[in-house]
């Protein structure tokens, strides 16, 4: 469905994208996972034919993003990160504009947007500018879908959205996938990686890894422990200065540490007891995507400086 080969893009001196390569299969939910500034939006703009890369090749459904941009624009839907509908048109008018641009009507593809649009339909005569954030998002998604695209681009649809609404949105994406629409979605929330079929982990314009979330986790090769005690903020400092501990980060109600050399639970337990900690708990754990991302980002930084 999408082929990206050695795509690079520079803005002035800033290398926004560095030799990015991956493929997206038909019917896949593919995630671009990375923090702000990792290049996600730049990549979206190249794939949606709004920006031309400095080098590399990108194809969408067999069409070249530079030569065949007209064809691509007919078959994709794009929901940018920033709300970009017409604030001075009503909900229904916005949808009509997008439908007529693509030579279709709301009725024709209503089945596709029904689940999403029916939630805002009671407000169809309200100006888009007067909608709440969640409703704006549903309208934007409806507008991006009204011409029945084969491929949908969603740029950070869950940023600033609460956990419950985020879950709802991912549910909608799953249904769209069942309708045969391929989806490329970006997010800065690492925990959403698990909801994608495959992901590209991105950092500072580099692609750290492309794989299924499960494989990324399996490839993690560090020893990872979770540690907690009765004084978590002191614990963080005490773990950081331990000579055998490579990295230490707070993760919810525990701290995650990786080790340089094998030490035993007992050795660490005694070390922490001596420093005055009580209720010490140490466990071996399996990593989450966030652990993997931080590890890969660290390795990436090492590679870049070498």
């Amino acid at each position: 469905m999408v082929k990206v080969e050695n795509i690079s893009k520079k803005y002035g001196k800033v290398q926004a994208l560095n030799n990015i390569t991956f493929n997206v299969d038909k019917g896949e939910i593919f995630g671009l996972i990375g923090p702000d500034g990792s290049g996600k939006t730049t990549l979206f703009r190249i794939l949606t034919t709004l920006l031309i890369a400095d080098s590399g090749i990108a194809k969408v459904d067999g069409y070249d993003v530079v030569k065949d941009y007209r064809e691509i624009r007919k078959i994709i839907g794009y929901m940018p990160g920033r709300f970009s509908l017409y604030q001075d048109l009503t909900v229904k008018e916005n949808l009509e504009v997008f439908a007529s641009i693509f030579n279709t009507s709301i009725e024709e593809n209503y089945y596709l947007i029904k689940d999403i649009y029916s939630q805002i339909e009671p407000y169809k005569n309200r100006y888009a500018g007067a909608l709440s954030g969640g409703m704006k998002q549903k309208l934007a998604l409806s507008c991006a879908l009204i011409h029945k695209p084969v491929l949908l681009f969603l740029d950070e649809p869950t940023t600033g959205v609460d956990p419950v609404s985020r879950k709802e949105l991912w549910g909608m994406l799953k249904k769209l996938k069942e309708d045969g629409i391929s989806i490329i979605v970006s997010t800065a929330y690492m925990d959403e990686a698990g909801l994608c079929d495959r992901v590209a982990l991105m950092s500072k314009g580099y692609c750290l890894s492309v794989d299924t979330p499960k494989n990324i986790i399996q490839k993690y090769d560090k020893i990872l422990w979770s540690v907690s005690s009765n004084n978590m903020s002191k614990l963080l400092k005490d773990l950081k200065i331990h000579s055998e501990i490579e990295s230490c980060f707070a993760f919810g109600d525990t701290h995650h540490i990786t080790l340089k050399n094998r030490i035993t639970f007992n050795e660490l337990h005694n070390y922490l007891m001596k420093l005055g900690h009580n209720e010490i708990e140490i466990k071996t754990i399996s990593p989450g995507i966030e652990d993997c991302f931080m590890d890969l980002a660290l390795k990436g930084a090492d590679d870049a400086s070498n």
């Binding site: 990375g34 702000d36 940023t159 600033g160 950092s203 963080l236 980060f249 931080m294």
Partner: peptide, 23 residues
């Protein structure tokens, strides 16, 4: 919502700064 969009390592460093302020 101070930490939206920031990479996981920076987000945690930010919380260390918060801890320090409360200390």
């Amino acid at each position: 919502e101070p930490t939206g969009g920031v990479d996981p390592a920076s987000r945690r460093q930010f919380w260390e700064l918060i801890y320090e302020a409360t200390d």
